[in-house]
């Protein structure tokens, strides 16, 4: 990175009582980048984003957002960020236009600038014409796009989106991501959290967080190739008992259930489709089909989060 980063997080930590929600996290996001913050529910994603937005005070460590320290100059940070929270947080009893007028107003937009910007963001979000609707009566997908429109009303150079796509149908999710990529192309830095790992493909860089710790930080491709293992997809009759028995085989590091199939992880280059079929045959484990498959981000995440013992569970 030859430019100074838009977001620069250094050893950020948050402790609630005896529970460490975020544990010495450090990362940097370049201007205009889309940074995906991925991990299961409760991993510390929202807590991190809330500290960066000035909603929570950090226990230790700090971060520079837009060049300003979140603890020492929160007001300057606020002026430069847009934030969309996990819960819909516009006023339901106000109309779309009233919500836009309020949020534009508190950011200091003049009446004329507000009118232009409101029209712009509504067009961008594909919501032109709904200005007089009561916000509470809109559908979930429209509310979510409206919340984004509101968050970018004051043209913040940095945007924080906390699980914006949870509870939204797949078509709307895709449309939403196109909107975000559009914003990034115009120079906005975006930090987005999600628990949908497939959405990581839209991000330039990702950070994987588990139990408050950052377990991987790179481009999606590099995160996948960073796990030095091969993946074999197995079709078996009894998923759970097979998964248990596979653990006993020395060349298999771990397993994970992917729908009706089982993924087995072996050290890179240690096994081929033929050798593994032979090994399983010798161990008396019935396998209908066995294929080598490329490592997905889900695989990588499973291996990074639980390297000791991957539980047969649904992917995150």
């Amino acid at each position: 990175m030859n430019e100074s980063p838009a977001i620069d997080v250094r050893d950020l930590t948050k402790v609630f009582g005896r529970f460490t929600a975020v544990d010495r996290i450090s990362f940097a996001v370049a201007p205009g980048d889309i940074f995906g913050f991925l991990g299961p529910n409760g991993a510390g994603k929202s807590t991190t984003i809330r500290m960066l937005c000035g909603l929570l005070a950090s226990t230790s460590g700090t971060a520079l957002v837009g060049g300003y320290d979140i603890n020492r100059e929160p007001d300057r940070v606020r002026q430069r960020i847009g934030y969309m929270s996990q819960r819909f947080s516009l006023y339901r009893d106000l109309t779309v236009a009233e919500n836009l007028a309020f949020f534009g107003g508190v950011y200091g937009l003049s009446r004329g600038a507000l009118r232009d910007r409101a029209a712009d963001v509504l067009r961008l979000a594909g919501l032109s014409g709904i200005e007089s609707a009561r916000t509470g009566t809109l559908s979930g997908a429209i509310q979510q796009r409206l919340a984004l429109a509101c968050a970018i009303l004051h043209a913040p150079p940095i945007l924080f989106l906390d699980e914006p796509t949870s509870g939204v149908d797949p078509v709307s999710r895709r449309a939403f991501w196109e909107l975000i990529q559009d914003l990034a192309a115009r120079g906005t830095t975006v930090l987005i959290t999600t628990h949908f790992l497939d959405e990581a493909e839209f991000c330039a860089h990702i950070g994987l967080i588990s139990a408050g710790r950052l377990v991987a930080l790179d481009t999606p491709a590099a995160v996948k190739s960073g796990v030095a293992e091969d993946v074999f997809e197995l079709q078996v009759d009894d998923l759970f008992s097979s998964a248990e028995r596979l653990k006993g085989i020395p060349s298999i590091l771990g397993t994970a259930c992917f729908g009706p199939r089982l993924h087995a992880y072996c050290p890179r280059g240690a096994a081929t489709e033929q050798s593994l079929t032979a090994t399983l045959g010798a161990a008396g484990i019935p396998v209908t089909a066995l294929h080598s498959v490329p490592m997905s981000l889900e695989d990588a995440f499973m291996r990074l989060v639980a390297p000791a013992a991957a539980l047969p569970g649904s992917p995150v």
Binding site: P31, A113, D116, D120, P157, R186
Partner: peptide, 9 residues
């Protein structure tokens, strides 16, 4: 360096 949105007022 953060390059604000081109359409920003």
């Amino acid at each position: 360096a953060t390059g604000p949105d081109a359409r920003a007022p």
